[in-house]
Amino acid sequence: MNRGLRLYEAMLPFLIPLLILAIWQVSTSTGLVSTRTLPSLLDVVRAGVRLTLDGTLLEAIGVSTMRAATGMLIGGGIGFVLGLLNGVLGVADKLTDSTLQMLRNIPHLAMIPLVIVWFGIGETAKIFLVALGVMFPIYLNTLHGIRSVDPGLIEMGRVYGLSRWQLYRRVILPGAMPSILVGLRFALGIMWLTLIVSETIAADRGIGYMAMNAREFFQLDVVVFAILIYALLGKLSDMMAKWLERRWLRWHPHFAKPASPPKA
């Protein structure tokens, strides 16, 4: 019974995507939807196989993933440090938070023409945009997480003689970690969204470039396949964030494993 329940819970998230794929294939194969508007699922799969065999897909995924990861590390690192400083130092908060909030309200994708002027269409432009997009979710959630730590826990840590560094490492950061990881999941979505837009506007390599190049030749199967690849990469990123939640938040009641019932 438990095994069947686990299998059911594992398959449940895939139910709606599989249903959408089935409806997609049936609607195009029966002519309900014209293949000039939306290629069939089988045509998209064939395009994916072709791109995989000639090496185009793996190269594009590698280039796009490197851009996304580099921007995430830079922007996420800056956001985390600023959130940490502003959460524990009142002077830093008063000095920088207002400026950061003003910058946050500027749509970073609207800066693409200016970024192209600054950096051209090379790697720096796309990494800059990704870093700018992911910095603020990490910053805000880190700041909120640190400010939401129970003051009673901090006082208890002081009573037990914890040093300032030990207090941050054992009390403040663990208490803020749920909020920080929420910011990470939010930032991962913005990361791929920013990369999609930047690659389709100014790029000479990557998944977005592959899609735009296919559009020029009206290869809709390749365009749709590129969109599905972006969706898959986004899902994999979210799965990685969930894995970090389960690993780093074992103490949290939501992620704690239920105790096994005693044997009769």
Rank of each mutant, 00 (worst) to 15 (best):
V182S: 03
L173G: 02
Y8T: 06
K126C: 09
S29Y: 14
G62R: 02
G87S: 07
I180H: 08
T96N: 08
A203Q: 01
A211Q: 02
V130S: 05
G206Y: 05
F119L: 03
A256I: 10
I196L: 13
G208L: 03
P113H: 04
E9D: 03
H254V: 10
D93Q: 10
Q101F: 13
L233S: 05
L84V: 11
I16C: 09
G120C: 10
F186Y: 14
M156I: 03
L84Q: 02
R250K: 06
W165G: 02
M102H: 12
M66A: 12
L193P: 00
S179H: 12
S27E: 05
T96A: 15
R158D: 12
A47W: 04
L41W: 00
M212E: 08
I112L: 15
I20C: 14
P137F: 15
L15W: 07
A256G: 05
A60H: 00
R50S: 12
K242A: 14
K257H: 07
H254C: 02
T96K: 04
P253K: 02
G79D: 13
Q25G: 00
G183D: 04
L95G: 09
M1Y: 11
L143N: 01
G152S: 02
L162P: 02
L89P: 01
G79I: 10
I196A: 04
I121A: 10
Q219M: 13
M1W: 11
I229G: 05
M210V: 06
L181D: 01
P107E: 08
G175K: 03
I20G: 11
P113V: 00
I138D: 06
T194P: 00
G206E: 12
T65G: 07
L84W: 12
G145K: 11
M102T: 11
W248C: 11
W118G: 01
A211R: 01
T96P: 00
V223G: 07
P39L: 04
M135Y: 08
K242P: 00
A231V: 13
Y230M: 13
V33E: 13
M11T: 04
A259D: 09
A241F: 14
S98Y: 14
G71L: 15
R250I: 15
L12T: 11
T142V: 08
K263F: 13
G183Y: 14
T30Q: 14
E199W: 00
L41A: 10
L21M: 07
R36Y: 10
R164T: 12
T99Q: 04
R3I: 12
I172L: 10
L89V: 11
L143G: 01
F225T: 05
I20V: 07
L19K: 01
I74W: 08
G157M: 00
N2E: 09
A47H: 06
K242G: 04
V26E: 15
I74L: 15
A231W: 07
L109T: 09
A187Q: 05
V115D: 04
S27Y: 10
S179K: 06
I74D: 11
W192V: 05
I172M: 03
V33T: 12
L228H: 03
G183P: 05
A203D: 02
I112N: 04
V45L: 07
A256C: 05
